[in-house]
Structure formats: structure tokens, C-alpha cells
Computed example of a mutant assay.
Amino acid sequence: MTNIIISPSKYIQGKDEIHNVSKHTYFFGNKFLLLATENGIKRMKGIIEESFKGTDAKLTFETFNGECSRKEIQRIEKIVEEKGCDAVIGIGGGKTLDTAKAVAYYRKIPVVIIPTIASTDAPCSALSVIYTEKGEFSEYLILPKNPDIVLVDTAIIMKSPARFLIAGMGDALATYFEARASVRSNSDVMAGGKATKTAFAIAKLCYEILLSNGYKARIAAEKNVVTQAAQAVIEANTYLSGVGFESCGIAGAHSIHNGFTILHECHHLLHGEKVAFGTIAQLVLENSPIEEIEEVIHFCTQVGLPTTLEKMGISDVKEEELMKVAELACGEGETIHNMPFKVEPQDVYAAILIADELGRQYIK
């Protein structure tokens, strides 16, 4: 049996750390392509240029067109080739960062990831999600390695709307419970092979940090300030959850999230908001102790994550629609099959209903 753990080559986090980007990247070369949205370039260009001031670096700022598509990846590739860039620096949210990772992979050059929100664990992953030009899911691009550097400026993160940090907590919340289920079933993980004890310890630490710092971090996010609690949660959302899910596995919570994407009423929700409810449903599915389920519901309520179908936007619950959710969650290739027992759509349907009722009772 082979055990494997993967992670970024270097993870850097700190307040105003973007001012040190040249110090962290000089050894990659002196020609950099910086990919960001138009607004991102407006906000970051001056800071980054100041960081590289006094060096011989040549910076090419390119506006991301908004979709991580094959066409956009190829467009950026051509610019990298024409400019002879030594590395790609992606700045922004998930699709911008995934495009930067894909471009660097195809050009065989290093990639530096600078997330501007902490809403998911994607920045650290060896994965790009590819969409069509119309924004429809196309494919997963599995990369041979994680980013060379992930640089997280916590001051930038905390200037974004609080909802993003809270959604990130919802995504990170699932890490430990899905890791636990995957380890129990001895499933293969995205890193290849089986989970290491180190990765499982990281997944568990992720949950512990959320419980002890989540509510305090939410308040800090609402005030747009950086605190020790916020620093801890940003690390949990970004690094601990990223390494935890790739090197320990995902299971029921994310499959149930995928099921809910079929409902129009849930399209306004962020990824982590759906994953949070999926986590409660997974705990019901595996008949976890009521104390553990209540602990998770209490956490979600404290930080502002949905614990009922109504809070997810589903006010009129229809059996046939929830069964479609359950069937999609149990589709071929879904990670719910990493649970340590066989799961059928009827089981997921029941778990969703019970999770909803437990959430309602807690609110009462």
C-alpha cells in the first residue's frame, strides 16, 4: 500500500504580504505574466510594480476574460510564449487562478497563486476546472503538481465581503468529516495511493480551528479587519482544507453539494454554503452521534451557514426534486461512494430530510 501527501511547494501567509511578491519569486526568472481581472489589475498593479522596483523584472499584466475555458487558456499561453515569460502569477478568485495553473502547466513554467478571497480550498490544489465559453462545466484538468507558491495576503482577503470567508468555512467544515469517511473506507485519494496520517491530522486540525476561531473570524470579516482568529481561519480555509481534501479524500458532503446544483433555488448559493448543509446530511447518513451533529449545526448557525432547506432557498420542498438531488449525488464517479458503506439515492433523500428537520429544531 502506498501513502502519499501533496501540497504547494511553499505556502506564505501574512498581512500586506503582497508587497513582498518580488522577494518570493525572484528565483523563477525576471519575466512574469500577471493574470487578473480588470478590477484586480487596477487594485494590485501599483503595489506589485513597487515591489519589483529596482529589479530587472519585466512585468506583463494581462486581463482575465472571466472564464477558465480552453480558448482563454490558449490565448494566455500565446502571450506567455510571445513575451518569453519565466513564470505565471495568478491573482484573484477561483477561475482566474485555475487559468493561471493551466497555462503554467502547458507552458511548463512555475505558477504563483495569489487568492483575493478565502471562499474555497482551491488555491492550493493540483487541479483546474475547465468550463465552456458559456460557463458550463467541461472537464477537470488534473495537474502533475501543486502550485509552486501560494501567497495569501490576509489584508486583501479581509477587505472582501464577509460572505466569502464564511463560505470558505463551509467548504473547510467538510474536510475532516470527509477525510474520516475516506480513511474508514480505505479509499484512494486525489494525491494517489492512500491517505497519510499527517494529512489526516491536518484535516482534523482544520475542524478544530474552525470551532475555536470561526465566530470570531466572522466578526472580523464583517469589520474588514485582520485578527489572529481571522489569520487562523484563512489558513484553515485555504491550506489545511486544501491539503486535507487532496491527500485524505472527499466523500458525501461534496456529492450532496453537487446534487443541489440541479435546483434553480440553490443557484444563488456559494460552493461552501451548499457544502455546509451537505456536511450535516453526511453526518446523518453515517448515523454520527447527535452531539457531533449538534456541534456542527451550532457552528453553522454561529457563522451564518445554512442549516435547513429553507435557508438554502428551498421553501417549497417537493419529494421528486429532492430525489433528483439524491440521484445526482449518487451518480457514477461521485465521491459519495468513498463512504465506508453502500449509499443509495433513497438513503441520501432521507438524510437530507432529517438534516433539515434537525436544523429546524435547533433554530426553535
Rank of each mutant, 00 (worst) to 15 (best):
M339V: 13
G244V: 01
C266I: 07
A199Y: 04
G168C: 01
A104Y: 01
A230I: 11
K83T: 14
K159I: 01
L270G: 07
V348Y: 10
L263K: 02
G90N: 10
E273K: 11
P8K: 06
Y239Q: 01
N224P: 07
K194M: 11
L165Y: 11
G170K: 02
G84N: 06
P345V: 04
A181P: 00
L269M: 11
N146R: 09
Q231F: 11
D356Q: 09
G46C: 01
K53F: 13
L34D: 04
K95L: 10
L59N: 07
S241P: 01
Y131F: 13
S187V: 06
I262N: 10
G214C: 06
T227I: 09
V111W: 05
L328P: 08
Y215N: 14
E222G: 10
E321H: 12
A195H: 01
V152I: 06
Q231A: 08
F177C: 08
L270C: 08
G259P: 08
V183Q: 03
T175D: 01
F32R: 02
S247A: 01
Y105T: 11
V226I: 09
E291D: 15
H257A: 09
E327C: 12
I293K: 02
F52S: 05
T96M: 03
K95A: 08
L322F: 03
E81A: 15
V150M: 09
M158G: 09
G313N: 06
V296Y: 03
A350K: 15
Y106L: 15
A155T: 00
A36G: 12
V152F: 01
G252I: 09
I297V: 14
K58D: 11
A221L: 12
T198H: 07
F177M: 07
G214M: 09
T301Y: 15
E136I: 00
M44W: 04
E49I: 06
A230P: 07
F260L: 11
P110M: 03
V183C: 11
T227G: 06
K324T: 11
D56P: 00
K108L: 13
A350L: 13
Q74H: 14
K83P: 09
G259K: 05
P123N: 08
K194R: 14
F52T: 03
V129P: 02
I352S: 02
I209H: 09
E265I: 08
I336W: 12
E273P: 03
R218T: 12
G92P: 08
K71S: 13
E67D: 09
Q361N: 14
T196C: 07
A195R: 00
E295R: 14
V88M: 10
A87H: 00
G249S: 05
M323I: 12
I234Y: 10
H267C: 07
D56G: 06
Q74M: 15
I91H: 05
F61C: 04
R360I: 14
N39Q: 14
C266S: 08
T154L: 01
M190W: 10
I91L: 12
K134F: 10
V111T: 05
Y11D: 02
Y26E: 15
C85R: 04
L151V: 02
V343L: 08
T175S: 00
D356Y: 05
E273A: 06
G244Y: 04
T37H: 08
V152P: 00
M190G: 13
A174R: 04
A355I: 11
H337C: 06
I6C: 03
